[in-house]
Design a binder for these strands. Structure first.
Lengths: 222, 222
DNA sequence: CAGTCATTCTTATGATCGTTAGAATGTCAG
DNA sequence: CTGACATTCTAACGATCATAAGAATGACTG
């Protein structure tokens, strides 16, 4: 019976993907790349890992065909092999959130001030943003915003907020988002803006979560 | 900066899920359990692995909270921890199919006679089945059919087809399905029925794929 | 209660993985 | 061509994993 051999082959291929997704650092890389293409150097600094280690992990991801790369001058730029890879990251995280109590609890304690979490659903938020009833800000670095962002969102990287306060409406509720539930950028933004007296909340979604839920995102035409 | 520590903790939890999904045998177990609950013994025989090894893999899945179990007399019965786990299996497989050429090609050569692959879309098939224009048969074992099956499908386990030919209409096209793209049961059924002169095709979808596509499935009320 | 069966726990062994350090590659600036 | 820089390749270490064999558990059978 060589049906066994065939099946072993098939499942082994899928396991290649699973293996690539079995290391915390590699998952973090996938989430970062889901925000947009990045150089090895910038990935390493976001990971708090040295370049050699980052490169080793990228090699594994490359061999599993989850990422592709291109050279640009001295730098090598990595990107996800497809948007389905970002979707895979989202479903892995969702399964983990659903079934691993440790994660559920850690996440629950993560949001600095739970009262600052937006209570409205995605659809309602989208409607409110469309009608200009709230001001949605994307607090990630600009190039991530340019790659893809939520509809009606404006870019306001957390590092620039203090300098650009004048651009924010003081009469509207501000809704901040960042890379996803594991990202702390929007917490920083909320703390900062709340201290300045703004009405501000955050949502947990990032662009990948929004897209995985079937909602539209905007790209910059280039 | 202990943001690093927190992040390490979060990604490590998700990596637990990835690790559990990094072994071919464990993936095969997940796919089998997606069809319905199973004893260790029946899993082992489907895997062509001995019980001890199967049990060791089940332990890993259990520790990742992807499966749960209960005792029933002498037997221990495992099941998926939730339908999202079946969804995760489907997205892993889809990413692998999309990006791993080896898998794409192996799958392409797998279907014994590609002409026997149904060409119609899921929605069209559903409509045809609803109107009784085709006869959809579920060739998996009966208990898997009972757990969940495609709408309008009747159970016709491949082991019983020969004995139950009389139940099949000779004037309608027959469409067979089984556990999914990696499962060979429907190929067997197609070969068998084609030899008897039936007009018969197969689809690659199993119940999990059907459900992941957002289409309805039927459960037996119990 | 002894025997049997299904399953897990324990332990051991070789293989693989994560990580680090040092050498090598490829590219740009002068 | 030389030096500087980003990145990968190679080699090596300890840690973890897959698998197998033997002892232990838990539950039904008589």
């Amino acid at each position: 019976m060589n049906k066994r051999l065939l099946k072993d082959l098939l499942y082994e291929q899928v396991a290649r993907i699973g293996k690539a997704a079995s290391s915390p650092k590699r998952l973090e890389i996938l989430e970062l790349l889901a925000q947009g293409e990045k150089t090895v150097e910038s990935l390493a600094s976001e990971l708090s890992a040295d370049i050699k280690l980052t490169s080793a992990h990228l090699r594994v991801l490359k061999e599993a065909r989850l990422v592709t790369f291109r050279r640009e001058g001295k730098y090598i730029i990595y990107q996800l092999a497809g948007s389905d890879v970002a979707g895979l990251w989202v479903s892995l995280r969702q399964v983990a959130e659903e079934h691993l109590l440790e994660l559920k609890m850690a996440l629950g304690q993560m949001v600095a001030d739970p009262a600052k979490l937006s209570a409205v659903s995605r659809d309602v938020l989208l409607e409110q943003a469309k009608r200009g009833e709230v001001c949605v800000i994307d607090v990630r670095p600009l190039n991530e915003y340019e790659t893809a962002h939520l509809p009606f969102a404006r870019s306001m990287p957390v590092a620039e907020i203090e300098r650009r306060l004048a651009e924010l409406p003081s009469d509207l509720e501000i809704v901040a988002y960042c890379r996803g539930p594991f990202c702390l950028l929007s917490d920083e933004a909320v703390a900062l803006l709340a201290a300045k007296g703004y009405r501000v909340r955050k949502i947990l979604d990032g662009v990948s979560e929004w897209q995985a839920a079937g909602l539209p995102v905007e790209h910059l035409e280039s």
